[in-house]
Design a protein around this nucleic acid. Structure first.
Lengths: 149, 149
DNA sequence: TCAGAGTACATGAGAGTTCAACTAAAATGA
DNA sequence: TCATTTTAGTTGAACTCTCATGTACTCTGA
């Protein structure tokens, strides 16, 4: 038997979907405007910028940037065209590729980060109380732990 | 001055993004598998199914299904090809179009809903305590109220 | 009553995503 | 050692989304 959502759950679910979408749209619009890239590309640059040598194997990068391999592959191809990332063959594993954040890529990131953080605050943190932020953290981390296997 | 995220906020933000994406991916995969449509299309069918006469003006439908007008227009075109939705001219306003859920569309929805709800529970509600669900509801509704203007 | 502004929706191009191949290089193991 | 399997990554096609633009209709006010 299907366990349908009761009215409260329905409401929560719809608010959850709406909130998530509103935030993602705000992020995408802001980054598209300021840096001409979608949020998924931004996450890739961030992940690279935090890696030692600002470089990472493609598959690890996909995991860190929450991207599928295929998506990452296409995305890095675009980022490479813009000169923000470069690909090198992996010496240790002939199958591997290493994505490297270029200086230009890093500069773009540095220039874009403040506006992005501002948008993140505006759309999420400024809306919530400290307590709610804490709760949200616990909730999302629980979801993540469960769904990430 | 940029108000950077402190480490806790960083963690919350990343968990938030990851959780949202995991849930959306789970939804999309499930619906693609079971009904051959993305979640956005499903939301359109749901909105229509709840409207009087299972029909709605395009612009109102866009609002209810959290879609841009353009996206909705493309989506309804596809749904029409599959015979799940039909478009009629609006008698009261020559500019308007009315989207109508067909019987086939309704049947598809009815057939798909149980599996979808199951997925929603698996990815969100079953993961959280009652209390967390309550908190999440308040949080998302606050975000929604703020970002929807 | 009619010109101009605004609204409703569609459409086409460009960009991103997904999915299913496909290539090439390890790893496995008999 | 060699055939098989697994892993890493890319690619192309089909699809969706966004953005800008276009078309048709309605509303407004002089």
């Amino acid at each position: 038997m299907t366990r349908w959502l009761d009215p409260d759950e329905q409401q929560t679910w719809r608010d959850f979907l709406a909130a998530g979408q509103l935030i993602n749209e705000a992020l995408d619009r802001q980054l598209q405007r300021e840096a001409g890239m979608p949020h998924t590309y931004y996450m890739i640059l961030v992940a690279l910028s935090e890696a030692p040598g600002r470089s990472m194997r493609m598959s690890e990068l996909a995991a860190r940037a929450q991207s599928s391999q295929s998506r990452l592959s296409h995305a890095v191809a675009r980022l490479e065209e813009r000169g923000w990332v470069r690909r090198e063959r992996c010496p240790a594993d002939g199958r591997g590729n290493i994505a490297v954040l270029t200086d230009e890529g890093f500069a773009t990131l540095a220039a874009t980060a403040p506006g992005h953080v501002e948008e993140v605050r505006r759309s999420l943190f400024d809306v919530l109380t400290r307590e709610q932020v804490r709760e949200l953290g616990a909730i999302c981390s629980a979801v993540r732990d469960t769904l990430e296997r």
